[in-house]
């Protein structure tokens, strides 16, 4: 089995799935921050996207620019079959690790 995705990688991949054809750097960054409920450095998202693309889990291409970006192009991302498989593996692993435990756990006083 390939390496299991970390939580941040899962958040980035799920943001790409959620955003669909509108998945580009800034949009993914905003979606990840919203889901993780904490500030995230844009550089962390860019570095993760680069890593996921190197692993063959996502694919990217350049699109048009807009006035909000001074005409600089967007880089759009889409998830590959290997990316969906990796997300399923990560979810399965987590469920397996947690099987047999009640959630949320209670602190014993």
């Amino acid at each position: 089995m390939a390496d299991v995705l970390g939580a941040f990688e899962q958040a980035v991949l799920l943001a790409i799935v959620r955003l669909g054809p509108e998945a580009y750097g800034r949009g993914i960054h905003a979606a990840v921050q919203e889901r993780l409920e904490r500030p995230v450095a844009p550089g962390a998202v860019h570095a993760t996207l680069d890593r996921l693309e190197t692993k063959g889990l996502v694919r990217s291409w350049l699109g048009e620019g807009t006035k909000a970006r001074d005409g600089r192009p967007h880089r759009y991302y889409t998830i590959e079959t290997a990316g969906i498989r990796a997300l399923n593996d990560a979810r399965r692993t987590l469920q397996h690790v947690w099987s047999g435990f009640a959630w949320p756990m209670r602190v014993r006083g």
Binding site: R26, R69, P73
Partner: peptide
């Protein structure tokens, strides 16, 4: 090949 899109993302983030 990454300079324009990354700086564009940062510019958009700053402006938001």
């Amino acid at each position: 090949d990454r300079a324009d899109d990354v700086t564009g993302d940062l510019l958009e983030t700053l402006r938001d």
